[in-house]
């Protein structure tokens, strides 16, 4: 049941990304190109997504626990540090180069084209390299 409902949520997510145009790298890049071929559609994507999520989350949180788990797993970190801001800046530079973000590129794999496959492959390498570097730094810090 847990897997089946996650599959359903994934299907809804992928359909939303496709309909919204977030699956189209050129459309995403054009949102940021106010000085050129500007396409403000992405503002409507974020608007629709945040309105539904903002209201839906508050309805879900009226329960003491989710339907298939004993508690809600919400992020607890509070500090705005260099890791967060630096990581976001690096992500932004990468997003601005090709127009793929993780939530857009994963559904794009379903189109059977080579570009999303190449992008996601490189992105996974990036994640694994970053995780290895983080783990090495943590080990070093715990030894010191």
């Amino acid at each position: 049941m847990r897997a089946l409902l996650a599959l359903l949520a994934g299907l809804v997510f992928g359909a939303g990304i496709a309909l919204a145009g977030m699956i189209n790298p050129a459309k995403v890049l054009n949102f940021f190109d106010v000085a050129g071929t500007w396409d403000p559609s992405l503002a409507f994507v974020m608007g629709g997504a945040i309105v539904v999520t903002f209201i839906g989350y508050r309805l879900a949180w009226r329960r003491t626990a989710p339907l298939l788990d004993t508690r809600f797993h919400l992020p607890t970190a509070q500090t705005i540090d260099l890791r967060l801001v630096g990581g976001a800046a690096i992500f932004g530079v990468g997003w601005g180069i090709a127009g793929f973000c993780p939530g857009g590129a994963i559904p794009a794999l379903g189109l059977g084209r080579v570009e999303p496959l190449v992008f996601v492959g490189a992105m996974i390498v990036g994640i694994l390299v970053a995780r290895t570097a983080r783990n090495a730094a943590t080990r070093k810090a715990s030894l010191a």
Binding site: R2, L5, A6, L8, A9, G10, V12, F13, A15, G16, I17, A18, L19, A20, G21, M22, N24, A26, K27, L29, N30, T37, D39, P40, S41, L42, F44, V45, M46, G47, G48, A49, I50, V51, V52, T53, G56, Y57, L59, A60, W61, R63, A65, P66, L67, L68, D69, R71, F72, H73, G103
Partner: peptide, 30 residues
């Protein structure tokens, strides 16, 4: 590269992304 401005479709798609987020919170708490 020119892309078509699609406010309605993008809003509907965005709402589905939101619905997916709500489903995952309601069922899995994630």
């Amino acid at each position: 590269m020119i892309t078509e401005f699609t406010p309605l479709l993008s809003f509907v798609g965005g709402s589905l992304i939101g619905l997916a987020a709500v489903l995952l919170m309601l069922f899995h708490g994630r």
